[in-house]
């Protein structure tokens, strides 16, 4: 089923929208959730929450790219679940590894600014920075820290050694830090 048709179902408040979106994007969202949440039950619940949040958001929203929209909801829901689990010492998966890598470059001090608006601005700044990078560097960065793909999978996908992937990511994090300092975020 085409995305436009699925969105029409959401807008008509037709409950067929949920099985339609599950069929088309269930595997995609489940893969995102599983990279963040090692417990399959947590991942499954997170994907179910995604359909509910999508149902509540559409309308009034009509996302131009449904897959990305659902992927972002899944990622955000899964990260929140991971943080809650981590507080109860039930964390795991790729998130602690990604946080450790980012922590090597960025200090772990308090954020100097308020959250929601600044997160959007920070996201825009990261976008601008990535557009100045070579395509494979930008792609590696996003697939590691947005999609939270394991380094060994990235090495395989890009035809590189794991060491080379780590080196590229390390250099990119340092360049991002310099860029964010220049832009006044750090």
């Amino acid at each position: 089923m085409q995305d436009e048709t699925i969105l029409d179902l959401f807008w008509q408040r037709n409950e067929e929208a949920i099985p339609a979106v599950k069929t088309k994007y269930g595997a995609y969202c489940a893969a995102i959730a599983r990279r963040i949440l090692p417990d399959p039950r947590d991942a499954e619940e997170c994907v179910s929450d995604t359909w509910l949040r999508a149902w509540n958001a559409i309308p009034p929203h009509r996302p131009p790219r449904l897959a990305l929209f659902l992927g972002k909801i899944t990622r955000e829901t899964a990260l929140n679940r991971w943080k809650a689990n981590n507080a109860q010492k039930r964390g795991g998966g790729e998130v602690p590894l990604a946080l450790e890598e980012l922590g090597d470059t960025f200090s772990t001090g308090e954020d100097p600014v308020g959250r929601e608006v600044e997160l959007a601005q920070l996201g825009q700044a990261i976008s601008a920075f990535l557009r100045t990078q070579p395509p494979q560097t930008a792609s590696l960065f996003l697939r590691r820290y947005y999609h939270l793909e394991p380094i060994r999978d990235l090495a395989k996908a890009f035809g590189l050694t794991e060491s080379s992937v780590k080196t590229t990511l390390h250099r990119t994090r340092k360049k991002l830090k310099t860029y964010l300092e220049k832009e006044g975020f750090l």
Partner: peptide
């Protein structure tokens, strides 16, 4: 800045960049 702030901020990266990073063609590095 806390590292998890950066992870959260990545949810606000431009859609076209995220879509492009997912494209199979961008993964092919020789």
């Amino acid at each position: 800045m806390k590292p998890d702030t950066l992870l959260d901020a990545l949810n606000y990266v431009d859609d076209d960049l995220l879509a492009w990073a997912e494209e199979p063609g961008t993964k092919k590095i020789r």
